[in-house]
Design a protein around this nucleic acid. Structure first.
Lengths: 152, 152
DNA sequence: CCCAATTAGTGGTATATGCCACTAAATCAA
DNA sequence: TTGATTTAGTGGCATATACCACTAATTGGG
């Protein structure tokens, strides 16, 4: 592999995606920051809000996130009193999650800021292009990459 | 904000991007795993490789990553002997980075696996669509989001 | 030449995220 | 019913990534 014939790093779909995520994440973070939440936290609170006291597993599945990662991410939000959990009475393995009143207030404040970031993004890239981008990203999220392994 | 009229979470460009990044990151990670590297580490070694003993700041800028984050990310690679650093003799504030021979060998092994992931991705989404996606992501990485702040 | 301002990295702290081993609860099969 | 299996979460550990305060080195005026 001679250094002179190397493809640019931009060739890697994964690297390009991560780089864009760092950039855009920082932008949304900066805009949402006055609420005291990170953009990821705002997104998580929102996901909880739109769910009907969702189980942790359901949230993790929606976000395509590891269940234990969700547990970790939830901790500061519980610590700060924005979220609370309770065992599902039907199945005590299941832990359900809901916003506290403070959590809802915090979310509403953060959503106002989020709208600014979202609007700004769409102004800059164009509403149509943004929509196409989200569709492409959702496609990726829905993909099935199964490498042909032995099917037992 | 009534729960019944809420936009789906997929409306947030940032959330969609992160979710896709988790999904794709896991795929590339899984494929590259036999090399013992994470996809992020493979990408970082590659970035170092294609640079000419790049300074940390230069790497961070290319990857649109915080300088201190880069420092942290580099540590396991240094610990494992894949990367070494040295002060730039022209400017001793600057720390340059290069691969060790073991690091180069590791990168070469990881790149073979990376190609499998990359190929599989392009087979699944289509080469053309993948290329357009990367272009869109690179556009985002290059955007200037300046919110109209006071210009002093 | 000296001091103020700028630049490059470091280390600490915090969140984001994944894996693994483990526990508890529910389910399934004999 | 009971023992094996599956399912849902937890806790520990490791990497990814950001911000901040701090240090060291360089640069730009006087």
């Amino acid at each position: 592999m001679s250094k002179d014939s190397l493809p640019g790093l931009t060739l890697c779909n994964n690297a390009a995606l991560r780089r864009a995520a760092r950039k855009l994440g920082k932008f949304y973070d900066d805009v949402v920051e006055p609420s005291g939440l990170k953009a990821t936290q705002q997104g998580l609170l929102y996901q909880i809000h739109i769910g009907d006291e969702p189980a942790m597993g359901a949230i993790a599945a929606s976000l395509i996130m590891d269940l234990s990662a969700l547990g970790h991410t939830l901790k500061p939000l519980i610590r700060d009193g924005y979220v609370e959990t309770f065992a599902d009475p039907e199945d005590r393995r299941v832990k359900r999650v809901r916003l506290t009143p403070q959590g809802l207030a915090k979310l509403e404040a953060a959503m106002k800021l989020w709208q600014i970031a979202q609007q700004r993004f769409e102004d800059v890239v164009g509403r149509d292009k943004a929509e196409k981008l989200r569709a492409a990203l959702d496609d990726i999220a829905a993909l099935d990459f199964d490498l042909p392994q032995a099917t037992p």
